[in-house]
Write a protein that binds this DNA or RNA. Structure first.
Lengths: 328, 328
DNA sequence: GTGAAAGCGCTAACAA
DNA sequence: TTGTTAGCGCTTTCAC
């Protein structure tokens, strides 16, 4: 349907090599022939076949972004940032959603290798050594984000542990001596990679360890709203809840609205991530801002360097920041 | 690095054709040879080269989703729904962001044709006949979403005009006789495709025409918050604002919180789309729900049929629904 | 400055 | 049942 190089060659009365020279701005061709070929190509709506080109060059100019969700604001923001970076470099990107299905993730990675992607940015949901080995065997430059795999893979993230430790300090300074940490993901099966979440829980635990005067617990149940309701009931002492993700905090705020609870009067609340949905709600949620746009940008740049075999840091840690709202 | 078919053939001591038969479950091969080839392939980490396959079959098993934004909840939800549908059919998808840059959109479409995508789902930002012609010349099955191009292209959307007309009825029944429509996008340059937005504005206009007792205007300025502030000031009569997108309404709610205005006491507010961010805010925004997941699903199914040359409706209109909140 | 030919890795049609 | 071969559309090398 669309013309190919041999076709243009016939139309122009020159050889395929000459057409190639004209089309791709290569030297060793007269201005006249070049102009002619270009005109004919244009007239016939010539579109190069990138697949054929990739087959011979070995470069597909495609990268893949593998995440387990898209509805979460966080991922959309990150993907957006990555796209900005790579588009200029001429890359297209596959977006792949694993839905926290480990098998699916494995399959997707295999498929991506079959499609000869030049690189992969992934928030992995697997973590087994077998998985790592498979990923390595694909021989595709890979950057892991948020969820760490092992030192065999480049990583972009933040010091989540320290971040939560500092979040706890904020509670402490505000006079809270009873703070629980809400982190349902930490409870998932052993074989799921929840690194980022677990590090956050560890930061909490480490603060609690160092402060025996503190009370509170790690809440790994998805019924955290009910648990909060019970904990708050008839209590005098200041009590706080630190969520490992803003989404939990948003749910809690919606819940307390319905229950007639007042934050921070009835309990203090803090989130994590700093998603942009927070801009629209009535309270300013205190949270730890994990600058996901920077993460995306860094991951893209790192991957670029890996692909180009250029010098690149193995890991990149972005700065987080505590943001004071009015829920503490 | 990774083995290819000729390599496996050598390793197995059979011909390339036989390897192909084994690998792709084709007939005319003994169980024994098949098993042997499969084992060797597995041992050597064989991964097919999909590019080479596509080159010969003429099918890339890839579709593209072209939108102008990703940060908007709406698009993320739609992409998610599309992915669900097409993944089962074995497709991968490129996500392309045009950022409302018309040239960029044109370039992206050309690049997609060069990559031999099997189909395209697009919320177009161009609308010129020249653009349509270019798109047609690519000979790639295409489904337009929300923003209509012309009858030359399949379309998935809703009757936005009727939707807004009905939205106005809701205002009317609540006693509002002064309602303005906030639709900044309607003001964009002539050559930008803002079909969905403009249809909404038309629904408003048509209601206003039929009801001379109504007052109000079409607000196309992005300073709509200030305009509201002035309009509301010292007014007795019930006044309402109908936004062509929930995002405007969310901004207005955030603004009125700051200004100490009370919705719906000081003014009535209605949005459009029903994005899921609404679940987290303190008010229940009255809105028109445009079921974007259905849109995504329908678009994917329609595209599938177009690609397969199967019977397919030319256009699909999904049902919208007015959702009563507490902002009227 | 231009043409001819090999080959990227695969599928598919035809021989053996 | 298996092997051989001709492309898919392109890049690249080498010869003219």
């Amino acid at each position: 349907m669309l013309p190919t190089i041999p076709e243009l060659a016939r139309l122009c009365g020159v050889s395929r090599g000459t057409v190639d020279r004209a089309l791709n701005g290569r030297p060793d061709i007269s201005d006249k022939t070049r102009a002619h070929v270009l005109k004919i190509a244009q007239q016939n709506g010539y579109v190069p076949n990138v697949l054929a080109r990739s087959l011979v060059t070995g470069k597909s100019n495609t990268i893949a972004i593998v995440v387990f969700d898209l509805r979460n604001r966080h991922f959309a923001q990150m993907i957006n940032a990555i796209q900005q970076s790579i588009f200029q470099a001429g890359y297209f990107s596959y977006i792949c959603i694993t839905e926290k299905d480990r098998k699916r993730e494995t399959q997707i990675l295999r498929d991506l290798a079959a499609r000869k992607v030049d690189g992969i940015i992934i928030i992995p949901i697997n973590k087994s050594p077998a998985f790592e080995e498979e990923l390595l065997k694909l021989h595709v430059p890979t950057v892991t984000v948020s969820n760490r795999l092992s030192s065999k893979f480049s990583y972009v993230g933040a010091d989540f542990r320290l971040a939560c430790y500092e979040g706890m300090q904020a509670f402490y300074e505000k006079g809270y001596r009873n703070v629980s940490f809400i982190c349902p993901c930490a409870d998932e099966q052993d074989d799921v990679n929840a690194y980022a979440q677990i590090q956050r829980a560890k930061g909490y635990a480490s603060f609690m360890n160092e402060h025996p005067e503190m009370h509170g617990s790690l809440i790994t149940s998805y019924d955290y709203c009910d648990i909060i309701l019970q904990s708050v009931h008839g209590r005098q002492e200041k009590i706080g809840f630190f969520c490992s993700s803003d989404y939990y905090a948003l749910n809690i705020l919606a819940f307390s609205r319905k229950q007639g609870l007042d934050v921070p009067k009835d309990f203090g609340l803090m989130g994590f991530d700093g998603i942009d949905t927070l801009d629209y709600i009535e309270k300013q949620l205190s949270t730890i801002v994990y600058p996901i746009e920077n993460v995306g940008k860094s991951a893209a740049e790192l991957l670029n360097r890996l692909i180009a075999n250029a010098d690149a840091p193995h890991d990149v840690f972005v700065d987080f920041a505590f943001r004071q709202g009015n829920t503490l």
